[in-house]
């Protein structure tokens, strides 16, 4: 049996809903980590069931909490809007009528203090687990449950092996890896989920030493 006792007795979480609250916090956290916890601007749009029942489930508050770096089991989740105000951040949350592919979907825009901007789409797939389905217009798929390296690059031969050999030198084991591209020989994106985190020095080596890498960020 693959499930654990703690999938039944657990998780410890802020209510009222694992999908609409705990999952929403996790979607927000992706944005926080994309900009290394230094959020300058953010904006959220909720779709489907998130938009329909989000107010009553605190989905709007929960996703703001995540963007601020709060965990799903922290009591501060419910005060997220106050926390944002104290941090001098105005994070608007819009409720859209558009029908998404998955019922529990949110689109998040974050801008970091370093000026980097990301727009990503996250879905809450049940039990507090999530999946990020697009980032900066590129279709992707990852869970955020593992340390994740996201590298944008040109779609050309050899780039992937250069990145993985840097990881190998650092003894970072790859758990899952997927490559996505918009069109042949256009922009591409590799998402590498690892057992141990990719540290800042390694990330910089990938950005600076691998030709064709336009950007890399870690979650």
């Amino acid at each position: 049996m693959s499930i654990s006792l703690f999938d039944i007795i657990g998780p410890r979480m802020i209510g009222p809903s694992s999908s609409h609250t705990a999952g929403a916090v996790r979607i927000g956290q992706v944005g926080n980590r994309l900009v290394n916890g230094k959020v300058k601007e953010a904006k959220v749009t909720l779709y489907g069931s998130f938009a329909e029942t989000g107010r009553g489930h605190g989905t709007d508050t929960a996703i703001v909490a995540g963007i601020l770096g709060v965990n799903p089991d922290q009591g501060t989740v419910r005060y997220a809007k106050l926390l944002a105000k104290e941090a001098d951040l105005n994070i608007p949350v819009l409720f859209s009528n558009e029908e998404p592919e998955h019922p529990n979907t949110a689109k998040v825009y974050v801008k970091g203090e370093n000026g980097k901007e990301y727009t990503y789409v996250g879905t809450s797939i049940g039990g507090g687990r999530i999946r990020v389905t697009s980032i900066n217009g590129m279709e992707v798929s990852f869970s955020g449950e593992y340390p994740t390296l996201i590298a944008f690059h040109q779609d050309a031969p050899g780039i992937i092996s250069k990145v993985t050999s840097i990881l190998a030198l650092e003894k970072i084991n790859v758990a899952f890896m997927k490559v996505f591209r918009s069109e042949r020989r256009q922009g591409a994106c590799m998402v590498i989920e690892t057992d141990t985190p990719v540290d800042e020095a390694t990330r910089l080596r990938i950005v600076n030493n691998v030709d064709g890498i336009t950007e890399a960020c870690t979650l």
């Binding site: 007795i9 998780p11 802020i14 209510g15 009222p16 809903s17 694992s18 009591g75 419910r78 039990g127």
Partner: peptide
């Protein structure tokens, strides 16, 4: 508490978290 955005343990879900 769950409905008020408080901390609970899902058992097995948040909606049924009171019984156990």
């Amino acid at each position: 508490v769950n409905a008020s955005m408080g901390l609970i343990v899902a058992a097995p879900t948040a909606g049924a978290s009171g019984i156990l």
